[in-house]
Amino acid sequence: MRANAAQQAGPADAAAKGQGAADGLPVVSLCHVRKSFGEVPVLRDITLEVQRGEVVAIIGASGGGKSTLLRCATLLERMDAGSLSYAGLEVARDEGGRAAYADKATVREARSRFGLVFQGYNLFPHWDVMRNICDAPETVQGRPKEEAEAEARELVRRMGLEGCERKVPCELSGGQQQRVSIARALAMHPDVLYFDEPTSALDPQLTSEVLKVIRGLAEEHMTMVIVTHEMAFARDVADRVVFMDEGRIVEEGTPEQVLVHPTQERTRAFLAHGKD
């Protein structure tokens, strides 16, 4: 049953994409999100919508709530209040100031619509590059082995990882590992790809390899939400920049508006005093 449903996920997704675009529904929509860790509020009334093909960069000081926002969007954390939906699929809605989550099947369906690239890659160390990329399409989506492997090989090529197919993660550089993790996420055909500070564990040279790959995806109009410290990269690649501070969205707009002509004092202070 699940395998069947998953097999249809590809075409069904495409249909949903088409329809979503036609309806003008945002790929992901977060409304009035609140989240506290104990007594400490981390997200205070965040609303963010991402349109198809849009690249959104989220910037801000550490502890400003950027990563928590991403973790709420990817269902790794539960929101306290607010709503979350993926192209019309309602995962959580606000019921009297509390977030009410949908049933397991809906949550599962929502998971198939996004991918996440972690700061620390989180590759599966016991599998080679091919298995890391192919396994979820085969195991989770039930796609045929040949199809999954052919696509994985294509992804390996696009990521510039030829010759690494049979290597295990510990034999790769950080930049290579991060590109494998991007390929792993892409193999699931997500509607939107999230990046949680994808280059902060890398030295400058390796950073540029990874940024190049992300830039390539942007050119192909992949919908992406990128939490980053790389201001130049954000300006270069993002359609929209969101500045977060103390759990709120302080300012958002085009890279030009936010990074060059910020209107808010806090944004200016952040841009002037360094990234972190």
Partner: peptide, 9 residues
């Protein structure tokens, strides 16, 4: 676990 969860395992 988080990587696996996001991938839908």
């Amino acid at each position: 676990y988080e990587a696996a969860e996001v991938l839908g395992y």
